Every structure is written in C-alpha cells, then in structure tokens.
Amino acid sequence: METKTKLSASLMCADLLNLERDIRILERNGVDYLHVDIMDSTFVPNLTFGPDMVNAIRSITDLPLDIHLLMEHPRLIVRSMDICEGDIVSIHSECKESIMENAAFIKQKSARFGLALNPDTTIEEVHKYLPYVDVILLMLIVPGFAGSMMIHGMMEKVRETRLYLDTHKFHNIEISVDGSVSCERAKHMRQLGASIFVGGTAGIFRKDSSLDETVPSFFGYIR
C-alpha cells in the first residue's frame, strides 16, 4: 500500500507577528503537521522557537506537531515540551547525547521518533538506530536558516535512502524532506520515496501568493 503523502508547514517561515492567523489558514487548508524548529545557536548558528512556544502553539490547535530539534543536547528541551500522540519529534543523529535515551522518552509519549540527518550524513551511518525510528528527516540544505538553496545531489540521496530502507526491510520508516522543497521538487521526491514534505519559503510561504493559494497548489503536486 502506498504511503499517504503529508505536508508539514514550517512555522519559522510564517508571519511571526500573526502566527495564530497563519495557523488558522493552514488548518483550513488541511495541512497535516505544523513543523517547529528548535535551535540552540551551537549545533546551528541560529535561534528560533523554544519549548514555551511549542506549548503555546499546542494550546491553540489540534494539528499534530512536527518538532525538529537542531541541538547538540536535546534532552532537557524534549522533556520541557507537551508532546502528544501523533506528533513527530526528530533529533539529529549528529547530536552529542544518547539517541536511544531520547528515542525511548519520545516513544513513551506515544509520539513518532524522527532521526534527522545532515546533508553529509548517510543512512548507513545510522543503521543501528533504524529499528527504533519512525521517520528519517533528510536535510537538503545546510540547516539553520530558511531560504537556503538545496545542495547538489540531495535528490539522489532521497532515492538512495528509500532503497536502503526497503532493502533492509524498514519499509515502515517514512522519509521526510526539509529545505528548499518547492512544489516541483516535492513531486519528484515523492516519486523517489519521500512522503512528508516540509513546506517553507520555496513551497508555501511565498511572497507572491497567499497561503490559501499555495497550500492547495502544493497538495496538487504531491497527491
């Protein structure tokens, strides 16, 4: 059975002064997840949302959250958030803490455990964690800032990752793609095996169109 494709709207690209308004528009247009990036200014040279913002977003919407922790030490932040069943919580394979300890805590909350890979990290390098992973989050750009260009060769990495997972009988692990995901690229990556698409400035938060226009258009490419 083909995996249902899903759109995860990247809130760091939203109008932060009107975030609740944008969330209501995203809800109305049927997005599947709200993607929330949490950074530490060390793992990546930027700061975005924190656990209090995650909990505030949780209080105004029933949409599941797709929480992406770009942090060297995610343990404390993971435990400060209101994680719910149906959420995806991703930590980086390159972080400096126990992957298994964090995975166990996330799964205890009935959330899906995601393992994020930087562009130069291969799926082979994280093979030992795959029995515990629900989602592989492939970074298609150097992480940290919205609006960056996709790194050459990342399309092929999507294909290679799906092939590796299927060859090793990890058919149930979904691939999420993040970074410069335009409608056209999303359509191609769907064919290569991705099923969760993080929509940012290249996909749905575009200056030339409203969310009421871009979200339905994006869905038209991936479904």
Rank of each mutant, 00 (worst) to 15 (best):
residue 63 L to D: 06
residue 168 H to L: 04
residue 210 S to L: 09
residue 70 L to K: 01
residue 214 T to E: 09
residue 6 K to S: 15
residue 103 A to Y: 04
residue 88 I to H: 14
residue 179 G to R: 13
residue 29 N to S: 01
residue 50 G to M: 07
residue 209 S to V: 03
residue 116 A to R: 03
residue 76 L to M: 09
residue 6 K to P: 10
residue 138 L to S: 08
residue 62 D to E: 14
residue 106 I to G: 08
residue 84 C to T: 06
residue 65 L to G: 11
residue 162 R to E: 09
residue 27 E to N: 08
residue 13 C to D: 08
residue 196 I to M: 04
residue 20 E to Y: 09
residue 166 D to C: 07
residue 31 V to D: 07
residue 156 E to T: 11
residue 89 V to T: 02
residue 37 D to Q: 12
residue 185 R to L: 15
residue 75 R to E: 13
residue 66 D to C: 11
residue 96 K to H: 04
residue 53 M to I: 10
residue 4 K to L: 15
residue 155 M to T: 13
residue 151 I to R: 06
residue 40 D to V: 02
residue 12 M to A: 13
residue 147 G to H: 05
residue 212 D to L: 02
residue 163 L to R: 13
residue 188 H to Y: 10
residue 182 S to D: 13
residue 186 A to H: 00
residue 111 A to F: 02
residue 150 M to H: 00
residue 8 S to N: 12
residue 35 H to C: 14
residue 89 V to N: 03
residue 212 D to C: 02
residue 10 S to W: 08
residue 2 E to V: 15
residue 49 F to R: 01
residue 198 V to Y: 01
residue 33 Y to D: 14
residue 59 S to V: 06
residue 186 A to V: 00
residue 30 G to Y: 01
residue 156 E to D: 14
residue 80 S to C: 06
residue 71 M to T: 10
residue 142 V to L: 02
residue 151 I to C: 05
residue 17 L to S: 06
residue 128 K to P: 07
residue 109 K to Y: 02
residue 13 C to E: 05
residue 206 R to W: 08
residue 154 M to P: 02
residue 157 K to L: 11
residue 109 K to N: 04
residue 63 L to G: 03
residue 203 G to I: 09
residue 6 K to A: 15
residue 84 C to Q: 15
residue 155 M to L: 13
residue 89 V to Y: 03
residue 64 P to C: 11
residue 79 R to V: 04
residue 141 I to V: 15
residue 11 L to I: 13
residue 164 Y to D: 13
residue 223 R to C: 10
residue 61 T to L: 06
residue 111 A to C: 03
residue 169 K to G: 02
residue 18 N to I: 00
residue 10 S to K: 10
residue 216 P to N: 03
residue 179 G to T: 14
residue 23 I to S: 11
residue 144 G to E: 10
residue 78 V to A: 02
residue 181 V to Q: 02
residue 100 M to T: 09
residue 110 S to I: 00
residue 165 L to C: 07
residue 188 H to L: 15
residue 47 L to M: 15
residue 62 D to V: 08
residue 198 V to D: 00
residue 184 E to N: 06
residue 171 H to C: 05
residue 23 I to K: 12
residue 134 D to R: 09
residue 202 A to P: 05
residue 124 E to T: 08
residue 217 S to I: 04
residue 165 L to K: 08
residue 45 P to E: 08
residue 17 L to Y: 05
residue 182 S to A: 13
residue 16 L to N: 10
residue 42 T to K: 15
residue 95 C to H: 10
residue 173 I to K: 05
residue 82 D to N: 13
residue 159 R to Q: 08
residue 212 D to S: 11
residue 39 M to C: 14
residue 188 H to A: 15
